[in-house]
Every structure is written in C-alpha cells, then in structure tokens.
C-alpha cells in the first residue's frame, strides 16, 4: 500500500473515530484562526476602507507596502511576535508567550495586511462607482468608508475568508510563538509538522486532508452566502 492510500484510510479513521484528542486540536486550530481573522478584520477593514477613499501624500507607498506584506513569511511574523512577547522582550511582562493568545496575536499580524489590502482593493473598485453619487449627497470620507464597508459586506467576506485561510494553514508563526505544546497550543498544522518529523507520513497526510476539508467546507459556505446575497440585494 502506498502512502496516499494509507493516508486516505488514516483520515477516514480519524474522522470516523472522532478521537477527542484530535477534536481538541481541530477546535483549537479553528478558534485561534477565527479569533485572528476577527481581530485582523476589526483593524484591517477600516484601514483598508480609509486608504481606499482618502487621497493623501504617501498613499501609493502604503498601498505598495500593504500589498507586499501580504507575502509576509509566517516565520517572520512569528519571530517578530516572539521577540516582542519573550520575557526578554518589551511585552514579556504579560507572560503570554506559548499560549493561544500569543498565537492569535502572531496570526493577526500575519493576516492583517491580507485583509487590509484586499479590502482596499474591493472598496476602491466600489468607490469608483459610488464616488460622484455619495459626494453629491455630501458624504465625508470616514462616512463614505463606513458606507462602502457595509455595502461591500458580501465581497469583503471573501477578504476575511482569505485571511482565515492563510491563518489556519500556516505553521511557522504558531509553531514559534505557541511552541506546539501538547494540549495547549498544538494545532492542526503543528501536529502535521510533528507527525512528519516522527516519520508518520500517513497520519500527517490524513490530518492535512481533514484541514483541507474544513477549509473547503467554509469556502463553500461563504460562496453560498455571497450567492444568496447577490440575488437578494443585487
């Protein structure tokens, strides 16, 4: 039997067995990445929208930097957050290194540019259509940003989802600041890395299949919401 068919069996066994240890890992993965995507959205959506509707010196530079940061390697985000949260670092006093909170912070840093940049793009496209009408009605830039955020809510779901997808799939940042502690900070990707290290490739691949399935389901769900909304609101 080759590794792939073994992996298929393994993931089926994991899924059907509903092993409580595995469930806890999946739950932590989802919780950490959802929390990170939420935090990054709360910060990134308004930032992206403001950049989209305002014209100010240095704007082009910020857009370029934001787009570049979308490709930020997770390990780098992890390293920066690690150095900040380490006892020897400026935020060491809080003692949150190697906790889920640290993982959420690192993933927020990682995902923020993605959500902000995609929001900027989305809102700027919409702004091109709305600008004259809204200006004619006497809108202020910050009110315009809010209005567009709400009006583009369904397409922005995709931006948030992209952020979540990046968070839940990355391993470098959570490994670094979470420490892959069994039962505390071990998530799906760090488990996959660990099982790969132990040479248990079928188990690692099986976990990968489950991760993929989760992300796939979520994507399908968001697509369905968008589809419904587009028919409902035009």
């Amino acid at each position: 039997m080759n590794t792939f068919s073994e992996a298929a069996l393994e993931s089926a066994r994991l899924l059907l067995g509903l092993d409580s240890h595995l469930l806890a890992i999946v739950a932590l993965s989802l919780e950490v990445s959802i929390a990170a995507a939420l935090c990054a959205s709360v910060i990134g959506l308004p930032i992206g929208a403001m950049i989209a509707v305002r014209r100010f010196p240095g704007r082009q530079f910020i857009v370029v930097v934001l787009n570049a940061l979308m490709g930020l390697p997770p390990v780098v985000a992890g390293l920066v957050v690690y150095l900040l949260l380490s006892r020897a670092g400026p935020l060491g006093g809080y003692g949150i290194l190697f906790t889920p909170a640290a993982m959420i912070i690192a993933q927020t840093v990682l995902v923020l540019p993605i959500i902000a940049a995609l929001t900027r793009q989305s809102i700027e496209d919409a702004w091109r259509d709305y600008e004259e009408q809204l200006k004619s009605l006497g809108v202020t830039p910050s009110r315009a940003a809010l209005t567009l955020l709400w009006d583009c809510r369904f397409s922005l779901l995709t931006a948030v989802l992209a952020g979540f997808g990046r968070a839940v799939a990355e391993v470098g940042a959570v490994m670094m600041v979470g420490g892959n502690i069994d039962g505390v900070t071990r998530v799906m990707t760090t488990t996959i890395a660990l099982e790969t290290s132990k040479g248990d490739l079928p188990l690692a691949l099986g976990l990968g299949a489950i991760l993929l399935l989760l992300v796939l389901t979520l994507n399908a769900l968001v697509l369905a919401i968008r589809d419904f909304a587009e028919r409902r609101y035009g």
């Binding site: 259509d129 709305y130 004259e132 009408q133 809204l134 004619s136 009605l137 006497g138 809108v139 009110r143 209005t147 709400w150 009006d151 809510r153 369904f154 609101y233 035009g234």
Partner: peptide
C-alpha cells in the same frame, strides 16, 4: 442642491433606506 445621474447608483439596502441614508447625510 441635488443631482441625478445617467446611471443611478443605489446602495445595497432597501429603497426606503437609500433615501433615509441621503437624509441622514443632509
């Protein structure tokens, strides 16, 4: 003063809310 454009731009909300939005801005 107000302006009506060749292609109307409507927000993704009800007809009524499109008008109350303009009133709130005013």
């Amino acid at each position: 003063q107000a302006m009506v454009f060749q292609r109307p731009v409507m927000l993704r909300r009800s007809a009524l809310r499109n008008i109350t939005y303009a009133l709130s801005l005013a």
